[in-house]
Design a protein around this nucleic acid. Structure first.
Lengths: 342, 342
DNA sequence: CTGAAAGCGCTTACAG
DNA sequence: CTGAAAGCGCTTACAG
């Protein structure tokens, strides 16, 4: 169907505007060096380009410049349970990719060996840079480092940089949990508990409590053990709290599933949320918005992180510099932590 | 960092193997026409290619062949509320893209005008085909059709084809709801209700009931009105059922938020799920797996649809044929519809 | 059965 | 200030 000839090239513009191909290229790319062009001619070139509906052939540009205008994205999804990490990171990456005219080579993996296999062939010449994120298993560090050593710019999206020389867009987990805890205290809670699963988050909780001068009753911190971030961990914690008569009046959970397990268990036990106990979740999952009460939750701003990561890997691929960054978590306020004054 | 010279080209292989560049190209691409090559030589070429770590320069191939090895993806996310549509479709598309060595040009949109703007420039020469999915607004049909008319292969992911000539990978919504309803009846329910939001789904419910010879009490179908697919629609329906004393013993909801609103409201009213009332959701959202009871739900098999769509658009871009397809929904069985016998 | 040559559309030294 | 020419790496008629 599509006639190849339908697409105008630099040559067509050059003929139409009575100039050379070189000049058209320079004008259209704003690459005139320290000399200038007659504004009249430049304008004429731009106009005819527009008239002809010119769009640069990216393959030709790639071939000539050695750039591919494509960025690889490697996300290890292992253990992701609907936190929306994948979707939201991709959203941000996509936005930046569109702005910068980049194609994407997306790859999601569940198993370490798939990840390793991909990471070893990924750099072989069809992308200008690589974004790596998701679950981080210790084994993967070496692989990631070796890719970068072979000359492909790499930016990671982990909580912490895995290596000083591999640029990372991180998120301060401790600060995130601190924010949630402080919010509960601000809402009038006198005794705040947490479900201990993520060490940094637990530290953030402890810091907030300490800063406000509230001694932590040992029962307030419920270790989730093997239940980790699950709904059942929330149920178990509530059960322990109720049976030991040490139920806090605020709970800064470490996942949204925690929060949901907590809320449902409390309701089942006749305790009202947020009236008697206020709860915050973690991850700002989609369902936080449509359960009742809606769940206040920490957003890891994955979309924003994805966007920054893409921008940084593009900088690196152009020889510019990029340094570690950290994005600020956001607390999304909803019903589960509402106080009468709100 | 990366030395361009580090990457071997056909020329390098040709020199190494003492043959011409043309021959290397033909052998490596299995394009020998009806003539053959000495197997010895072919083998030698393949071996040296491997030794040198040769990988084809895709930009050069693109420039020469006119193919871009890139597929555009345009997803209209309007109204998506965590059904996981975006994420799962992307997962499937990604998988197929990897298998077929395609780059992706991803675009997500929330507003019609963004969608239209993109769809009008999308086809201008950096992709070989376009996948369009997500929310379908009537205005968009013309735009989609005009893209295809301009010569870019298009495959859509909507419930129904929007035009006989635009290949679609559909999903039978009626069948999906029929499956859920039949399942509830099979689990021993005598009176099944639904929340009417999606006309086809409601028809599927009606068909199942009719086929089993169960007359539908008018109250069993609760119109959700403006509440649509929300949690609150589920709450409202339960309220109506309880107050009118017509609560069915099975509810085939039309969204997972419905199901969650229903389950929480029933529990609040002292009705046990699944012991007294069994419930199914729709969309197989991530949270179905980690609330208690877990929620039986219809999967729209988005991942599979995404994969098929990519395969079909690639076929079209190669001049092959492709026809409308429909994928089969799957019912994912979980706790909310469990019967004692399970 | 194998090879020489043209050309896809672009950018970039280089020359004038 | 502007242009002619080379060349990125590949594929494909065409010739032998």
């Amino acid at each position: 169907m599509q006639k190849p000839s339908a697409r105008p090239s630099l040559k067509n513009i050059a003929e139409e505007a009575n100039v050379s191909v070189s000049l058209v290229s320079k004008v259209l790319n704003d690459r005139l060096g320290n000399t200038g062009v007659t504004e009249v001619i430049a304008e004429k070139i731009r106009t005819t380009a527009k008239e002809l509906g010119y769009r640069k052939n990216l393959s030709a540009e790639s071939l000539r410049t050695g750039r591919h205008n494509a960025i690889g994205v490697l996300i290890h999804r292992h253990g992701e349970s609907g936190s929306g990490l994948t979707g939201n990171i991709v959203l941000g990456i996509t936005e930046a990719a569109r702005e910068h005219n980049q194609k994407l080579i997306l790859n999601f993996f569940e198993r370490d060996d798939e990840f390793i296999e991909m990471s070893e062939t990924a750099h072989r010449g069809m992308m200008d840079g690589l974004i790596i994120g998701g679950a981080l298993h210790p084994d993967l560090k070496n692989h990631i480092f070796s890719i970068q050593k072979q000359g492909l710019p790499v930016v990671t999206i982990f909580d912490q940089p895995i290596h000083p020389k591999i640029v990372n867009v991180g998120m301060d987990q401790k600060l995130a949990q601190e924010m949630a805890t402080l919010h509960l205290l601000d809402q009038g809670c006198k005794s705040v508990g947490t479900l201990s699963t993520h060490p940094e988050r637990t530290r953030g909780y402890q810091k907030a409590m300490k800063d406000r001068g509230i001694p932590i009753h040992p029962n307030w911190i419920q270790d989730t053990g093997a239940l980790r971030y699950t709904y059942q961990a929330g149920e178990a914690a509530v059960k322990n709290w109720l049976s030991s008569d040490t139920l806090p009046d605020g709970i800064a959970a470490q996942s949204d599933a925690h929060a949901m397990g907590i809320i449902n268990s409390l309701h089942a036990g006749g305790v009202k949320v947020p009236e008697q106990v206020k709860v915050t979740g973690f991850d700002n999952s989609a369902f936080c918005e449509y359960v009742r009460p809606t769940i206040t939750s920490v957003s890891q701003v994955h979309e924003q992180r994805g966007k920054r990561t893409m921008e940084m890997v593009l900088d690196l691929s152009k020889g510019k510099n990029a340094v570690h960054e950290e994005v600020q978590p956001e607390l999304i306020l909803r019903g589960s932590s509402r106080s009468p004054k709100d």
